[in-house]
Design a protein around this nucleic acid. Structure first.
Length: 256
DNA sequence: ATGGTCGGCAACCGA
C-alpha cells in the first residue's frame, strides 16, 4: 500500500496539484490537511472520475482534513473523543487492515500564549485517543502535519530556531509522550542520518532552492506496521509548480 | 535589523 500526506493550505487553491498528483502517482490513500473549506463547499465533483472515494471535515477559512482512498473507507471518526472535539483537525479511518489517523496538530502561535497550552493539551488528548481506540499491536498509522520538528537535523537552523513553537522542549516532550504509546518515526527509521524536509516557509525567499526547510509532516507507525514499511520519501516536484503549498507530499510504501 | 508570503475572505487572522 502506498499512502501519502499533504498539507494543501487550501484544497480549492491546490485542486489541480492534488488531482494531477493522484493521477500521476496512484497512491492507495492520500490524507490532506488544511483543506480550508467548509463541508458544503467541498470540491467533491472534481474527484468524480479520479477513482478515489473520500471523506472530509472542514470549517470556514481554517483547518480541515480529508482522506482519499482507492479502497472502501470504514470506521470513520472526526475529532478527538471529548470537547473541544476539533473535528476539522483529526480524521480516523480504517482502510482494509490499516487504521489511519490523519491529524493537523495546532501550530501554537507563541510559547507564552493560550494557543500553545492548547497545543500541548492536544497531544495529551491525542495519546488518550490512541489508548481508547487501539492497541500498540494493531496496524496503526498516525500521519499528518504535526507542527513538530523532532530533532536538530529536522530544521535548517537549529540554533536560531530553538524556542519556536514547533522546535522547543515542551513540544518535543508532548510529542514524545504520544509516541511512547507505541509509535516509531517511519522516515527517521528508514533514513537515520539524512536531512529531509517537508515544509519550506513562503516567507523565505528561495527557500526550496536553498533548502531552508523543516521536517514537520510525519508518519508514525506501530511496531508491527513499522516492520512492513519498505520506503518513505518526499516528492518535492509539486512544490516547484505554480502556486504551490508551503508543504509538499510525503509518501510511505507498506507491504500490506 | 524581529523582516518575508500566502489563503480565506472581506479586516485581519493563521501559518
Amino acid at each position: 500500500m502506498k499512502i501519502a500526506t499533504f498539507n494543501a493550505n487550501s484544497l480549492r487553491a491546490r485542486l489541480d496539484i492534488v488531482l494531477n498528483w493522484l493521477d500521476e502517482n496512484q497512491p492507495d490513500v492520500l490524507c490532506v490537511q488544511e483543506t480550508k473549506v467548509q463541508d458544503c463547499d467541498f470540491p467533491g465533483a472534481a474527484f468524480d472520475n479520479s477513482g478515489y472515494e473520500f471523506v472530509f471535515k472542514g470549517q470556514k477559512s481554517y483547518n480541515g482534513v480529508a482522506v482519499f482512498s482507492k479502497h472502501p473507507i470504514e470506521d470513520v471518526q472526526f475529532g478527538l473523543d471529548d470537547e473541544p472535539f476539533d473535528a476539522p483537525r483529526l480524521a480516523k479511518v480504517r482502510i482494509k487492515d490499516l487504521n489511519i489517523v490523519n491529524t493537523y496538530i495546532p501550530q501554537g502561535f507563541d510559547r507564552k500564549s493560550e494557543k500553545f497550552a492548547y497545543k500541548l493539551e492536544w497531544f495529551a488528548r491525542l495519546k488518550k485517543f490512541f489508548e481508547n481506540h487501539f492497541s500498540p499491536t494493531d496496524n496503526v498509522l498516525w500521519l499528518g502535519d504535526m507542527n513538530v520538528a523532532p530533532e536538530a537535523i529536522d530544521v535548517h537552523s537549529p540554533k536560531r530556531l530553538l524556542g519556536h513553537v514547533c522546535f522547543c522542549q515542551e513540544v518535543w516532550d508532548a510529542y514524545a509522550d504520544v509516541k511512547s504509546w507505541g509509535f516509531s518515526d517511519v522516515m527517521r527509521s528508514l533514513h537515520p542520518d539524512e536531512q529531509i524536509f517537508t515544509f519550506w516557509d513562503y516567507r523565505r525567499k528561495n527557500a526550496l532552492e536553498d533548502n531552508v526547510g523543516w521536517r514537520i509532516d510525519h508518519f508514525l507507525a506501530t511496531k508491527p506496521l513499522l516492520e512492513k514499511c519498505k520506503s518513505c520519501y518526499v516528492d518535492t516536484k509539486p512544490r516547484t509548480l505554480e502556486r504551490p503549498s508551503d508543504h509538499t507530499f510525503v509518501i510511505v510504501e507498506i507491504d500490506l
